[in-house]
Computed example of a mutant assay.
Amino acid sequence: MSLNSSAQFDPILVADVGGTNARFALITAFNEHTNQFVIEHINIFPSANFGSLESALEQYLQTVSHITPKRACLAVAGPIKSGQVHLTNLGWHFSVSEFKTHFDLQQLEVINDFAAFAYAAPYLDPKQNVIVKSGQADDNANIGVIGPGTGFGAACLVRTSQSTAVLSSEGGHISLAPVNELDTLLLNELRKDHPHVSIETVFSGPGITHLYKAMSAVKGVTAKNLDAAQISSLANSGECAVCDATLNQFCDWIGSVAGDLAVVYGALGGLFIGGGILPRMQARLLESRFVERFSQKGIMSQYAGQIPVILVTQDNIPLIGAAACLHNSK
């Protein structure tokens, strides 16, 4: 049964499990008027305090002992293969079927955290997020999601008139394409240290450092030993022109990357940007050539031009996505 704003139903357990924290909550309703899930009883546990996800969940369930959820969806920062889940940074491993039996669940879905982002996209609150590029979203078309963070994630919510499904991908590892002369000069420098320059080589936390080193070489300046946080600080304070140019180029060039992936995914329903980097560079992103470069797709420029781009800044995306995964499955 789908959730709706009037029917009575049992609360649904959702989780966001990462290397630092395991966050649990209950979905208690879906408001059809606002298109929002009602999330209650959020509790966060430091992952390092537990030897397994089972023990963390057992502690959470003790905090809501008056409720026994029968359906659950877990969004996890790790690979899921053949019903086995590995959380590499924690050393946690579990079998989906054994987990379902252990907690006496009627339904259990386990999804990657980036798949959760894709599921969440149609249910995000427009008032809490930032329009980077306006457009005309087709409510029945695919949605693309990307996110530069520790790495670069990319996925697509495939929508038909009958159903929805998430297409996970390794889009961050496709080759990074140069669009203008500066891109080409930077790519030539990047290739000296990286035989394969992928999107992730540049558009990730470590990637900012790679781009800074390449920018220094192009400008004939000796690069300092700076990490991404230092580059951002020096750029924002005006102390380092090369750092400033690096962040500007990051925002410009990712416009081309976002446009490429939007066209690949047929994302006429919109492209959503998450991850930990660009929300902290919001002003710079909005002042950059992102929009111009997003739409520069030759004979597909008009196609790309109609796609809206949203910078996601609201909280609890994996929990919303986990709820949406179950919501869409019924």
Rank of each mutant, 00 (worst) to 15 (best):
Q62E: 10
N35S: 06
L286S: 11
D113A: 10
I317Y: 02
A121K: 03
P195K: 12
I111N: 05
C73K: 03
Q107H: 15
Q162M: 09
D113S: 11
Y265T: 06
S198P: 12
L185K: 12
R284K: 15
S6V: 15
E58C: 11
K213D: 05
V64G: 02
T222I: 09
A120Q: 03
E58Q: 13
V218Y: 03
K224R: 14
E170N: 15
L13V: 02
G149V: 13
E200L: 15
F24T: 08
Q59D: 13
Q302L: 11
N31H: 01
E170F: 13
E189A: 04
A228E: 04
A223D: 05
L185Q: 13
M281F: 15
S134F: 07
Q249C: 12
T68R: 11
A116G: 00
G144C: 07
Q107T: 15
S134L: 05
A120Y: 02
S256L: 09
A56Y: 08
I277N: 00
L286M: 14
A228W: 01
T160F: 10
F50A: 03
Q8E: 10
G153D: 06
H196K: 14
V166M: 06
P279L: 09
A72R: 02
K224A: 12
G144L: 06
A141K: 11
L211N: 02
Y303K: 09
T184N: 08
F290W: 04
N35D: 05
A137G: 09
F9Q: 15
N21K: 05
V197A: 05
A165T: 14
T101Y: 09
F250A: 03
A77F: 03
C73W: 00
L182E: 08
G305S: 12
Y303F: 14
A22F: 08
H327S: 00
P126V: 07
S97A: 13
L278P: 08
A324Y: 03
I111V: 09
F114I: 09
F45Q: 11
Y119S: 02
Q59I: 08
D193C: 14
H93K: 09
V221M: 08
V64Y: 07
T184G: 09
N21S: 07
Q8P: 07
S232R: 07
M1A: 10
S301D: 09
T28V: 08
H93L: 08
G205Y: 06
N35T: 05
F103D: 15
G275N: 10
Q36P: 10
A120D: 01
Q136D: 04
Y265F: 14
V257Q: 01
E98H: 14
I320P: 01
E239C: 08
V221F: 13
E287P: 11
A137M: 13
V179C: 14
A155W: 03
S52N: 01
Q282L: 12
C240T: 07
A120F: 08
G135C: 01
P122Q: 04
V179P: 04
F9S: 13
V312W: 01
L311M: 04
P122I: 03
G18D: 01
K70T: 12
A245W: 03
R289S: 15
N89R: 10
V291Q: 15
V166E: 02
A241L: 13
Q128H: 14
N4I: 02
S55A: 13
V38N: 12
V309Q: 00
